[in-house]
Amino acid sequence: MKRITSMLLLAMAFVTATAFQSGENLAKLPSVTIKTLDGKTISTADFKNDGKPIVISFWATWCAPCKKELNAIAEKYEDWQAETGVKVIAVSIDDARNAPKVKPYVESKAWEYEVYIDENQDFKRAMNVNNVPHTFVLNGNMEIVWQTNAYVEGGEEKLHEVIAKVAKGEKPE
């Protein structure tokens, strides 16, 4: 058992080390199934925005900074869309306790986002999200070009800069 453990660790260290030597191979969006607020099953591979940037934000009804971030973006969403064509996808990781409250919350805040529920957290695991909020920016080729694991007051301005660059085909940061 010890030998197997050591070998697996070795393999892990190797792949981790190899992982950082490569160049421009950007992370692609993994393909897993999640549900719409109407209970329909869809695949994350079907996310699309006609070559324009996409923001994917993991949140939960019990996560105060997540809601602050998405509410802050909601105020500016129309302007951002007009400027960059960006689409925001909000993925709730709420479980059976709070999942029924997601739709009423989203509507009460009048969010114009695409909202999905990742009740089994398959998407969260596939995206290696440790904790929420965790926000990703995807370019037109559906590659992850930027991400952040926190929301600070005014953080939506930084996100806006990133989206504007990505929309022009530039590299963020």
Binding site: V15, T18, A19, L26, M127, Q147
Partner: peptide
């Protein structure tokens, strides 16, 4: 392995092993 884990930039540049991807 852990130290290497911290060397990653937020740009999420990833390796390919036989065309696949590693995440962690």
């Amino acid at each position: 392995a852990l130290v290497a884990g911290f060397g990653i930039s937020a740009q999420a540049q990833l390796p390919s092993i036989g065309g696949g991807q590693i995440h962690g």
